[in-house]
């Protein structure tokens, strides 16, 4: 049996080991292990997302395996991106509705650039976001009426931690916290009056305290929030207002 992967090799980047390419506009943070990108193709003509597989260490040989899953949970496309390569993955216009792109880079890393297709990383307790080297800005929606929410973090490798900066709709920092997060830990945020029903953002950066680096961080949003982290503010609004499934599916 062959599931044909409609992928087009574009550039062989021949990345040296240890180097991770700089983040482009709209591009995801560096991802490790299994992550899920929610995609709304929109019913128009076929479009493409870009997938890059990056080697973290010569010790790891895992390529990036991807699976595009349709609204009915069927597999539309599955395939692999070899280390150091970038590939364009075609997203069919139909069927319409929410798709999910599974990205499993194992111990290596990957990046995805949705190239304008509305999309968001899924970040819920059972399907958390696995990032590496921090995340510069990810947008999420705080539903109307939400008074408080939490973001959960784990950075269980020795000498690794994170500094999380949560910004409100005007870009002002609401929460700044850092730690080693060796065990799952919640970071609480109180929603000021008038800041609900709007898009917020968060960033993961290197802790200011000495001795800790930011690298592998597992992150998820608590059920008070829709389980989506977007690379663009308008996408966060689109995903945030979707009808949910009852868990991290917040109805307004």
């Amino acid at each position: 049996m062959t599931i044909h992967a409609s992928v087009v090799p574009v550039v062989f980047l021949a990345l040296a080991a240890h180097t991770l390419s700089p983040q482009a506009a709209d591009e995801s943070p560096v991802l490790r292990k299994a992550n899920y990108l929610a995609i709304l193709p929109g019913g128009g003509p076929q479009r493409q997302v870009s997938l890059k597989a990056q080697q973290v260490s010569p010790a790891y040989s895992d390529a990036l395996n991807f699976t595009l899953i349709g609204p009915d949970s069927s597999t539309i496309t599955a395939g692999e991106v070899l280390l150091g390569e970038e590939r364009l993955l075609s997203i069919p216009g139909k069927p319409e509705g929410l798709h999910v792109l599974e990205l499993d880079s194992g111990w290596n890393a990957c990046r995805v650039d949705p190239r304008g297709i509305p999309s968001a990383m899924v970040a819920r307790e059972t399907v958390p976001l696995h990032t590496a080297r921090g995340a510069k800005q990810l947008f999420f929606y705080v539903p109307r009426g939400c008074k408080q929410f939490s973001v959960w973090l784990v950075a269980d490798a020795p000498r690794e931690g994170a500094r999380i900066e949560i910004a409100g709709p005007d870009g002002g920092k609401v929460v700044e916290e850092e730690g080693d997060y060796d065990k799952p830990q919640r970071v609480r945020a109180t929603v000021p009056a008038g800041c609900d029903g709007k898009v917020w953002s968060l960033a993961l950066v290197k802790p200011k305290a000495g001795g800790l680096n930011v690298d592998d961080v597992v992150l998820w949003l608590d059920p008070a929030l829709p389980p989506y982290l977007s690379m663009r503010e308008d996408w966060a609004l689109t995903f945030g207002k979707r009808k949910g499934d009852g868990v991290n599916g917040v109805l307004e």
């Binding site: 899920y36 899953i69 949970s73 597999t75 929410l98 899924v122 399907v127 979707r242 991290n248």
Partner: peptide, 11 residues
């Protein structure tokens, strides 16, 4: 059959 988000599950 792992629920990912909304009604979508991965096999």
């Amino acid at each position: 059959l792992r629920p990912v988000v909304e009604d979508i599950r991965v096999k």
